[in-house]
Design a binder for these strands. Structure first.
Length: 205
DNA sequence: CTCTCGATGCACT
DNA sequence: GTGCATCGAGAGA
């Protein structure tokens, strides 16, 4: 499996968010391969995006969002969970794509152990869940996703003729007018369960 | 099935 | 001290 090149991430963050759908998230831990197919993403910008961690100045936490494209930006939230982003931007000073859901492909037994569940649709159906399934913590923060290693993103053989949907981003209160969440329609059952109101906001791209 | 609510650590004001 | 880019349990329908 060949990692996506740096140039893939050196484009408009919203475009990268759409194009990451269907790609393979690859994690090597203790010589074991864990692979998931990305089915839900969200774009986060810089000073143009009040919902982004990079809306204000560069700090210790958000520094990776201001750095090289194609790296893992991982943060800890709600006292319990890690969330995984891929840094991506064109002309703005910062930007990243949050990986919100994945469909388990390989190493499913290990993922089930990591998640303490045997329910397939409960392994990667949420940003905090998929990091737990893949044993991703702040130790992987700033890891290079363009190099074969402990964490990277690879092209998939799947032809991308899937229907793509979009909506407002989940769990934020600012900039709800931006429809920067993207997902593969037929994999909605793998995405996080949404409130009825959020589901009604979803439209076709 | 749906919705509400509390846990929990830490960055930032 | 305040506010989260969340999750799972529990209650109600």
């Amino acid at each position: 499996m060949k990692p996506l090149g740096r140039q893939f991430y050196c484009r408009d963050t919203v475009e990268v968010a759409k194009d990451l759908l269907g790609k393979l998230l690859v994690r090597e831990v203790n010589g074991r391969m864990l692979v998931g197919r990305i089915v839900e993403t969200e774009a986060y910008g810089a000073h143009n995006d009040p919902a982004s961690h990079a809306y204000r100045k560069k700090t210790d936490r958000n520094a990776v969002m201001f750095g090289e494209q194609g790296r893992a930006y991982i943060y800890f939230t709600y006292g319990n969970h890690f969330c995984l982003n891929a840094t991506a931007r064109d002309n703005l000073p910062a930007g990243a794509v949050l990986i919100r859901a994945m469909q388990p492909i390989e190493g499913i037994g290990s993922m089930m152990q990591n998640r303490k569940t045997s329910v397939l649709t409960n392994i990667g159906s949420g940003p905090g869940k998929l990091t737990q399934a893949l044993k991703i913590t702040r130790e992987q923060n700033s890891a290079d996703l363009c190099t074969k290693g402990e964490l990277y993103i690879a092209r998939s053989n799947d032809k991308m003729n899937s229907k793509i949907g979009k909506s407002s981003r989940i769990g934020i209160v600012r900039a709800v007018d931006k429809k920067w969440r993207f997902f593969i329609e037929e994999n909605l059952h793998v995405s996080r369960k949404l409130k009825t109101n959020d589901r009604n906001q979803q439209v076709r791209v």
